[in-house]
Design a binder for these strands. Sequence first.
DNA 1: AGTGAAAGGTATTGGGG
DNA 2: CCCCAATACCTTTCACT
Lengths: 153, 153
Amino acid sequence: MKLDVFDKKILTLLQKDSRISQRELSSEISLSASAINRRIAAMEREGIIKNNVTVVDAHKVGRPITIISEVSLINERLDLLEKLKKRFIQCPQVQHVYYVTGDFDFLLIFNVRNMEEYEGLTRELFFTSENIKNFRTIVSMQNAKQELTVVLD
Amino acid sequence: MKLDVFDKKILTLLQKDSRISQRELSSEISLSASAINRRIAAMEREGIIKNNVTVVDAHKVGRPITIISEVSLINERLDLLEKLKKRFIQCPQVQHVYYVTGDFDFLLIFNVRNMEEYEGLTRELFFTSENIKNFRTIVSMQNAKQELTVVLD
DNA sequence: AGTGAAAGGTATTGGGG
DNA sequence: CCCCAATACCTTTCACT
Protein backbone atom coordinates (compact mmCIF):
# COMPACT_ATOMS: atom_id res chain seq x y z
CA MET A 1 0.00 0.00 0.00
CA LYS A 2 1.30 3.39 -1.05
CA LEU A 3 0.52 6.41 1.09
CA ASP A 4 -0.37 9.61 -0.68
CA VAL A 5 -0.05 13.12 0.62
CA PHE A 6 -3.48 12.98 2.31
CA ASP A 7 -2.67 9.79 4.20
CA LYS A 8 0.57 11.29 5.41
CA LYS A 9 -1.19 14.42 6.63
CA ILE A 10 -3.74 12.29 8.46
CA LEU A 11 -1.02 10.21 10.14
CA THR A 12 1.01 13.27 11.06
CA LEU A 13 -1.96 14.82 12.83
CA LEU A 14 -3.09 11.56 14.48
CA GLN A 15 0.41 10.94 15.83
CA LYS A 16 0.20 14.26 17.67
CA ASP A 17 -3.37 13.81 18.89
CA SER A 18 -5.40 10.75 18.08
CA ARG A 19 -8.54 12.30 19.54
CA ILE A 20 -8.82 14.90 16.82
CA SER A 21 -12.22 14.33 15.26
CA GLN A 22 -12.49 13.14 11.70
CA ARG A 23 -14.49 16.30 11.04
CA GLU A 24 -11.65 18.49 12.18
CA LEU A 25 -9.21 16.44 10.11
CA SER A 26 -11.60 16.90 7.25
CA SER A 27 -11.46 20.69 7.47
CA GLU A 28 -7.69 20.80 7.99
CA ILE A 29 -6.98 18.59 5.02
CA SER A 30 -9.87 19.61 2.74
CA LEU A 31 -11.28 16.16 2.27
CA SER A 32 -14.71 14.96 3.37
CA ALA A 33 -15.15 13.25 6.71
CA SER A 34 -16.13 10.01 5.02
CA ALA A 35 -12.97 10.01 2.89
CA ILE A 36 -10.94 10.52 6.07
CA ASN A 37 -12.83 7.68 7.70
CA ARG A 38 -12.17 5.27 4.86
CA ARG A 39 -8.49 6.13 4.71
CA ILE A 40 -8.04 5.63 8.44
CA ALA A 41 -9.89 2.30 8.27
CA ALA A 42 -7.68 1.17 5.38
CA MET A 43 -4.49 2.11 7.22
CA GLU A 44 -5.69 0.21 10.28
CA ARG A 45 -6.49 -2.81 8.14
CA GLU A 46 -3.00 -2.72 6.60
CA GLY A 47 -1.33 -2.39 9.99
CA ILE A 48 0.15 0.99 9.11
CA ILE A 49 -1.73 2.28 12.11
CA LYS A 50 -0.76 -0.16 14.86
CA ASN A 51 -2.96 1.19 17.62
CA ASN A 52 -4.03 4.22 19.61
CA VAL A 53 -2.75 4.72 23.11
CA THR A 54 -3.16 7.09 26.00
CA VAL A 55 0.15 8.48 27.24
CA VAL A 56 0.41 8.63 31.01
CA ASP A 57 2.78 10.92 32.89
CA ALA A 58 5.03 8.47 34.72
CA HIS A 59 6.15 11.06 37.31
CA LYS A 60 2.59 11.90 38.26
CA VAL A 61 1.72 8.27 38.93
CA GLY A 62 4.74 7.67 41.13
CA ARG A 63 7.10 6.02 38.67
CA PRO A 64 9.75 8.67 38.09
CA ILE A 65 12.79 6.51 37.37
CA THR A 66 14.00 5.63 33.89
CA ILE A 67 16.90 3.22 33.61
CA ILE A 68 18.85 2.05 30.61
CA SER A 69 20.53 -1.36 30.69
CA GLU A 70 23.11 -2.61 28.24
CA VAL A 71 23.14 -6.38 28.39
CA SER A 72 25.87 -8.68 27.06
CA LEU A 73 25.34 -12.38 26.48
CA ILE A 74 27.70 -15.30 26.72
CA ASN A 75 26.22 -17.36 23.91
CA GLU A 76 24.39 -15.71 21.01
CA ARG A 77 22.71 -18.86 19.73
CA LEU A 78 19.39 -17.93 18.21
CA ASP A 79 17.19 -20.04 20.46
CA LEU A 80 18.85 -18.68 23.60
CA LEU A 81 18.56 -15.18 22.25
CA GLU A 82 14.87 -15.57 21.55
CA LYS A 83 14.23 -16.98 24.99
CA LEU A 84 15.81 -13.98 26.66
CA LYS A 85 14.15 -11.55 24.30
CA LYS A 86 10.76 -12.98 25.15
CA ARG A 87 11.47 -12.68 28.83
CA PHE A 88 12.49 -9.03 28.48
CA ILE A 89 9.42 -8.22 26.40
CA GLN A 90 7.07 -9.83 28.85
CA CYS A 91 8.33 -7.73 31.74
CA PRO A 92 5.82 -4.87 32.08
CA GLN A 93 8.37 -2.43 33.52
CA VAL A 94 10.49 -2.83 30.38
CA GLN A 95 9.29 -0.23 27.90
CA HIS A 96 11.87 -0.81 25.17
CA VAL A 97 13.85 -3.81 23.99
CA TYR A 98 16.42 -3.30 21.23
CA TYR A 99 18.51 -6.15 19.96
CA VAL A 100 21.83 -4.75 18.80
CA THR A 101 25.28 -5.93 17.77
CA GLY A 102 28.58 -4.55 18.86
CA ASP A 103 29.81 -4.02 22.38
CA PHE A 104 26.62 -5.44 23.86
CA ASP A 105 23.55 -7.39 22.75
CA PHE A 106 20.42 -5.85 24.21
CA LEU A 107 19.53 -2.34 25.18
CA LEU A 108 16.60 -2.17 27.58
CA ILE A 109 14.75 0.84 28.91
CA PHE A 110 12.94 0.42 32.23
CA ASN A 111 10.40 2.59 33.98
CA VAL A 112 10.30 1.94 37.71
CA ARG A 113 9.06 3.40 40.97
CA ASN A 114 12.46 3.34 42.65
CA MET A 115 15.87 1.68 42.57
CA GLU A 116 14.65 -1.22 44.68
CA GLU A 117 12.17 -2.16 42.01
CA TYR A 118 14.94 -2.08 39.41
CA GLU A 119 17.21 -4.22 41.55
CA GLY A 120 14.42 -6.74 41.91
CA LEU A 121 14.00 -6.85 38.16
CA THR A 122 17.69 -7.32 37.51
CA ARG A 123 17.60 -10.30 39.83
CA GLU A 124 14.60 -11.72 37.96
CA LEU A 125 15.79 -10.97 34.46
CA PHE A 126 19.57 -11.09 34.59
CA PHE A 127 20.86 -13.06 37.54
CA THR A 128 18.59 -16.03 36.99
CA SER A 129 19.89 -16.56 33.46
CA GLU A 130 22.98 -18.66 32.79
CA ASN A 131 23.52 -16.82 29.52
CA ILE A 132 24.08 -13.24 30.69
CA LYS A 133 27.73 -12.24 30.75
CA ASN A 134 27.17 -8.82 32.29
CA PHE A 135 25.07 -5.69 32.14
CA ARG A 136 25.66 -2.00 32.56
CA THR A 137 23.09 0.20 34.31
CA ILE A 138 22.67 3.83 33.28
CA VAL A 139 20.26 6.01 35.22
CA SER A 140 18.49 8.69 33.24
CA MET A 141 18.63 12.05 34.98
CA GLN A 142 16.02 13.52 32.67
CA ASN A 143 13.75 12.10 29.98
CA ALA A 144 13.86 15.13 27.79
CA LYS A 145 11.86 13.50 25.01
CA GLN A 146 10.01 10.21 24.79
CA GLU A 147 7.83 9.71 21.73
CA LEU A 148 7.03 7.09 19.14
CA THR A 149 6.37 9.58 16.37
CA VAL A 150 7.57 8.71 12.90
CA VAL A 151 8.48 11.33 10.29
CA LEU A 152 6.27 11.27 7.19
CA ASP A 153 7.46 13.26 4.19
CA MET B 1 -4.25 13.81 43.25
CA LYS B 2 -4.46 10.25 44.45
CA LEU B 3 -5.53 7.54 42.03
CA ASP B 4 -7.87 4.87 43.28
CA VAL B 5 -8.31 1.38 41.92
CA PHE B 6 -10.88 2.54 39.33
CA ASP B 7 -8.58 5.24 37.94
CA LYS B 8 -5.78 2.73 37.62
CA LYS B 9 -8.00 0.29 35.77
CA ILE B 10 -9.10 3.04 33.42
CA LEU B 11 -5.51 4.08 32.72
CA THR B 12 -4.36 0.50 32.24
CA LEU B 13 -7.02 -0.09 29.61
CA LEU B 14 -6.53 3.27 27.89
CA GLN B 15 -2.79 2.71 27.64
CA LYS B 16 -3.50 -0.44 25.64
CA ASP B 17 -6.22 1.06 23.47
CA SER B 18 -7.29 4.65 23.82
CA ARG B 19 -10.21 4.16 21.44
CA ILE B 20 -12.08 1.90 23.82
CA SER B 21 -15.42 3.60 24.41
CA GLN B 22 -16.33 4.91 27.80
CA ARG B 23 -19.33 2.62 27.63
CA GLU B 24 -17.14 -0.39 27.21
CA LEU B 25 -14.88 0.80 30.03
CA SER B 26 -18.00 1.22 32.07
CA SER B 27 -19.02 -2.40 31.63
CA GLU B 28 -15.49 -3.74 32.21
CA ILE B 29 -15.00 -1.78 35.40
CA SER B 30 -18.57 -1.74 36.70
CA LEU B 31 -18.89 2.00 36.99
CA SER B 32 -21.31 4.16 35.07
CA ALA B 33 -20.23 5.83 31.82
CA SER B 34 -20.62 9.25 33.37
CA ALA B 35 -18.35 8.35 36.28
CA ILE B 36 -15.75 7.11 33.80
CA ASN B 37 -16.13 10.34 31.87
CA ARG B 38 -15.56 12.52 34.92
CA ARG B 39 -12.55 10.53 36.04
CA ILE B 40 -10.92 10.73 32.62
CA ALA B 41 -11.60 14.47 32.45
CA ALA B 42 -10.04 14.95 35.89
CA MET B 43 -6.92 12.98 34.98
CA GLU B 44 -6.55 15.04 31.81
CA ARG B 45 -6.92 18.24 33.81
CA GLU B 46 -4.23 17.11 36.26
CA GLY B 47 -1.85 16.13 33.46
CA ILE B 48 -1.83 12.49 34.54
CA ILE B 49 -3.08 11.75 31.05
CA LYS B 50 -0.65 13.64 28.84
CA ASN B 51 -2.23 12.94 25.47
CA ASN B 52 -3.56 10.32 23.10
CA VAL B 53 -1.54 9.27 20.10
CA THR B 54 -1.80 7.00 17.11
CA VAL B 55 1.11 4.57 16.82
CA VAL B 56 2.39 4.14 13.28
CA ASP B 57 4.36 1.11 12.08
CA ALA B 58 7.69 2.62 11.08
CA HIS B 59 8.62 -0.30 8.83
CA LYS B 60 5.41 -0.03 6.84
CA VAL B 61 5.95 3.63 6.11
CA GLY B 62 9.50 3.15 4.88
CA ARG B 63 11.45 4.10 7.99
CA PRO B 64 12.85 0.78 9.19
CA ILE B 65 16.07 1.88 10.85
CA THR B 66 16.44 2.54 14.57
CA ILE B 67 19.73 3.90 15.79
CA ILE B 68 21.00 4.54 19.28
CA SER B 69 23.62 7.23 19.85
CA GLU B 70 25.63 7.72 22.99
CA VAL B 71 26.89 11.29 23.04
CA SER B 72 29.72 12.65 25.19
CA LEU B 73 30.25 16.36 25.77
CA ILE B 74 33.40 18.35 26.36
CA ASN B 75 31.90 20.94 28.70
CA GLU B 76 28.88 20.09 30.88
CA ARG B 77 28.01 23.69 31.74
CA LEU B 78 24.25 23.92 32.20
CA ASP B 79 23.58 26.49 29.50
CA LEU B 80 25.56 24.52 26.91
CA LEU B 81 23.80 21.36 27.96
CA GLU B 82 20.39 22.95 27.58
CA LYS B 83 21.26 24.31 24.17
CA LEU B 84 22.20 20.88 22.90
CA LYS B 85 19.25 19.23 24.56
CA LYS B 86 16.89 21.62 22.85
CA ARG B 87 18.52 20.91 19.51
CA PHE B 88 18.15 17.15 19.98
CA ILE B 89 14.53 17.46 21.05
CA GLN B 90 13.63 19.62 18.09
CA CYS B 91 14.93 17.07 15.59
CA PRO B 92 11.86 15.15 14.41
CA GLN B 93 13.80 11.98 13.67
CA VAL B 94 14.93 11.83 17.30
CA GLN B 95 12.31 9.87 19.22
CA HIS B 96 14.01 9.76 22.60
CA VAL B 97 16.42 12.01 24.44
CA TYR B 98 17.78 10.85 27.79
CA TYR B 99 20.21 12.95 29.76
CA VAL B 100 22.43 10.63 31.77
CA THR B 101 25.60 10.69 33.78
CA GLY B 102 28.47 8.27 33.64
CA ASP B 103 30.44 7.20 30.60
CA PHE B 104 28.46 9.50 28.32
CA ASP B 105 25.96 12.38 28.60
CA PHE B 106 23.05 11.84 26.22
CA LEU B 107 21.43 8.74 24.87
CA LEU B 108 19.42 9.41 21.73
CA ILE B 109 17.18 7.08 19.76
CA PHE B 110 16.64 7.88 16.10
CA ASN B 111 14.16 6.55 13.59
CA VAL B 112 15.36 7.01 10.02
CA ARG B 113 14.70 5.85 6.47
CA ASN B 114 18.30 4.74 5.86
CA MET B 115 21.87 5.26 7.00
CA GLU B 116 22.32 8.29 4.74
CA GLU B 117 19.59 10.09 6.64
CA TYR B 118 21.33 9.27 9.92
CA GLU B 119 24.66 10.47 8.63
CA GLY B 120 23.06 13.72 7.58
CA LEU B 121 21.62 14.14 11.06
CA THR B 122 24.94 13.46 12.79
CA ARG B 123 26.46 16.20 10.67
CA GLU B 124 23.66 18.58 11.64
CA LEU B 125 23.48 17.67 15.31
CA PHE B 126 26.97 16.56 16.29
CA PHE B 127 29.63 17.87 13.92
CA THR B 128 28.35 21.44 13.93
CA SER B 129 28.67 21.69 17.71
CA GLU B 130 31.93 22.72 19.35
CA ASN B 131 30.89 20.99 22.53
CA ILE B 132 30.60 17.37 21.41
CA LYS B 133 33.59 15.26 22.36
CA ASN B 134 32.46 12.11 20.57
CA PHE B 135 29.53 9.83 19.96
CA ARG B 136 29.01 6.12 19.56
CA THR B 137 26.49 4.77 17.06
CA ILE B 138 24.65 1.51 17.74
CA VAL B 139 22.36 0.12 15.08
CA SER B 140 19.33 -1.76 16.33
CA MET B 141 18.86 -5.06 14.52
CA GLN B 142 15.39 -5.49 15.92
CA ASN B 143 13.01 -3.30 17.92
CA ALA B 144 11.51 -6.11 19.89
CA LYS B 145 9.42 -3.78 22.04
CA GLN B 146 8.72 -0.07 21.89
CA GLU B 147 6.03 1.24 24.20
CA LEU B 148 5.37 4.10 26.57
CA THR B 149 3.19 2.08 28.90
CA VAL B 150 3.55 2.66 32.62
CA VAL B 151 2.79 0.02 35.23
CA LEU B 152 -0.10 0.87 37.56
CA ASP B 153 -0.52 -1.25 40.63
C1' DA C 1 -18.93 10.39 44.39
C1' DG C 2 -22.38 7.65 41.76
C1' DT C 3 -26.50 6.87 38.60
C1' DG C 4 -29.69 7.13 34.55
C1' DA C 5 -31.58 9.60 30.88
C1' DA C 6 -31.60 13.33 27.59
C1' DA C 7 -29.00 16.23 24.48
C1' DG C 8 -25.41 17.15 21.64
C1' DG C 9 -21.43 15.45 18.78
C1' DT C 10 -18.94 11.90 16.01
C1' DA C 11 -18.24 7.94 13.35
C1' DT C 12 -19.87 5.00 9.93
C1' DT C 13 -22.41 3.33 6.10
C1' DG C 14 -24.93 3.45 1.76
C1' DG C 15 -26.54 5.83 -2.48
C1' DG C 16 -25.06 8.45 -6.23
C1' DG C 17 -21.47 10.99 -9.05
C1' DC D 1 -12.01 7.54 -5.13
C1' DC D 2 -14.94 11.36 -3.85
C1' DC D 3 -19.13 13.73 -1.71
C1' DC D 4 -23.47 14.16 0.88
C1' DA D 5 -26.97 12.58 3.92
C1' DA D 6 -28.98 9.32 7.10
C1' DT D 7 -28.19 6.23 10.82
C1' DA D 8 -25.90 4.39 14.62
C1' DC D 9 -22.95 5.13 18.29
C1' DC D 10 -20.58 7.74 21.79
C1' DT D 11 -19.70 11.48 25.01
C1' DT D 12 -21.21 14.92 27.93
C1' DT D 13 -24.30 17.23 30.88
C1' DC D 14 -27.94 17.57 34.26
C1' DA D 15 -31.09 16.45 37.89
C1' DC D 16 -31.22 13.47 41.61
C1' DT D 17 -29.45 9.78 45.24
